[in-house]
């Protein structure tokens, strides 16, 4: 089961790479970037997961050693937390670029844009 979870997360990563490489529509490429981000975040969270783990937040009256014995790994979560917001701003940047391209050329298709530029 553990292997299946990792392999499926990598499959999600592959779908993102496929959308990036094989698609010609700008919207699909932005979607591919978003899916890549999801897959990486998912993989990092799953690596830090512990069977029956609690969130890494100290409860009232709990000792730190007890928390360390039963909590999930907090380090990947700290990495992913910032990555989520960065993903939003990168999506906003990509959407801005796509809107400028559409205003200029009237299409989302990369082939058409390449032909029109000439």
């Amino acid at each position: 089961m553990g292997i299946a979870v990792y392999v499926l997360a990598f499959g999600l990563l592959l779908i993102g790479v496929y959308a990036l490489v094989a698609k010609k529509n700008i919207v699909r490429i932005i979607i591919g970037i978003a899916i890549l981000g999801y897959a990486v975040n998912l993989l990092l969270v799953l690596v830090g997961y512990r069977h029956g783990g609690t969130p890494p937040i100290l409860a009232d009256g709990q000792t730190s050693a007890d928390l360390a014995a039963r909590s999930v790994d907090p380090l990947p979560q700290a990495m992913v937390l910032t990555s989520i917001v960065i993903g939003l701003s990168v999506t906003a940047l990509a959407v801005a670029l796509a809107i400028r391209l559409y205003d200029k050329y009237g299409t989302f298709d990369m082939n058409d844009i390449r032909n029109l530029r000439g």
Partner: peptide, 16 residues
């Protein structure tokens, strides 16, 4: 995220 013990991530993920 919520199931895997990361409520810190589930919050911003929904909003984002």
């Amino acid at each position: 995220d919520l199931l895997a013990g990361a409520p810190d991530l589930a919050f911003p993920q929904v909003l984002v």
